[in-house]
Design a protein around this nucleic acid. Sequence first.
DNA 1: CACAATACAATGCACTCGCATTGTAAAAAG
DNA 2: CTTTTTACAATGCGAGTGCATTGTATTGTG
Lengths: 198, 198
Amino acid sequence: MPKKVDHEVRRRHIAEALHRVIDRDGLDAVSLREVAAEAGVSMGMVQHYFATKDEMLMFALEHLNARVGLRIATARNRDSPRELVRAAVLELLPLDDERRTEARIALAYLARSVVAVDLADLLRAALPHVIGFYAEQIRIAQGDGQVPANLDPEREATILFALVQGLVNPALIGHYTPEAVVAAVDYHLDRLFPRGNP
Amino acid sequence: MPKKVDHEVRRRHIAEALHRVIDRDGLDAVSLREVAAEAGVSMGMVQHYFATKDEMLMFALEHLNARVGLRIATARNRDSPRELVRAAVLELLPLDDERRTEARIALAYLARSVVAVDLADLLRAALPHVIGFYAEQIRIAQGDGQVPANLDPEREATILFALVQGLVNPALIGHYTPEAVVAAVDYHLDRLFPRGNP
DNA sequence: CACAATACAATGCACTCGCATTGTAAAAAG
DNA sequence: CTTTTTACAATGCGAGTGCATTGTATTGTG
């Protein structure tokens, strides 16, 4: 048969160009022509690998989800549950350019998910994993006496996740400095792990 | 001179139609023609009251900000600081259709603000007011002994606001029921006001 | 070598967009 | 009544959109 091309590689290449466009000019600026130009390929090629624009968007979001998930899973080599949770939390905050870019992209998808059910499904599916991880670590820390036994791990995980997500948007529009964001996180972690960092 | 028309009334009428379009189909679906149709007027009239589309969007956002700010200011007739803060917090959460609509609209603006500096400025300007209100109430409650004196009012206000904002998005995409959202808020308020609701 | 399937590239099409222009009706001012 | 200013309505335009179609070069398979 014909030429051998790794479809996954091409699709990822296009997806990353797509995300650069979102980061630079927003999701509204995403068009087949714009993505093709950013990726340095022809528009016909983009169409060859993605039948529709929506399919391209969905693939790119899954690709991003996988990337972030992998990075969080990699950060598991920490000493204490507190440090582990802290690292996972900071990974989601726009503290440097890379994370800032990711946060901007994630926000763009989130906004569209309000009127695009498929996107909402994808985003929602990622939540239990993160929150469950927090809850798991809190439970472990309770076993070690680092977290007060009277705290509800599930609720604390829910609140921690909301707190983190709620810091993202003000930080993105420049209301908090990265240092202020980290300080707020540590302030809350001090309460959650009063004896987790001796 | 000519016909007498209240410009503000017309502009608000158009702005509300614009927000109905955002709520139904997202900010991407906002076009001069669509807004005009939703408002039941001609496209020429929309152009008569707003020189550009951006001007229309900015006006509509200010209009929304004013509406929400007014509603929060109105809710000040509560017994305790805790109940006051709780009411102000619940006012921002998508617990019913009206608040849900507002949250969807606010999210749309927020996403665009990432690439539209003017919008970001408007959104950022609203934050200190809300967070300052929380901090003020926490300080008052500390004076009454309802909030532990060792808590930092500014930091607690920051965290409370972030927590609330962080609950909005998962609630919008259906990950939390309204009851779960309220439960999470009350769980955190129990910690913040351990003796605020005897 | 012949064939067929794949990987693009190029172009066309119907549609929508924001905005500018033009025309018209109405009413306040002189 | 005349004039002038305002309030719209209607239309046109160039640009950009997603997608379909067509053409062509390449390469593995029989």
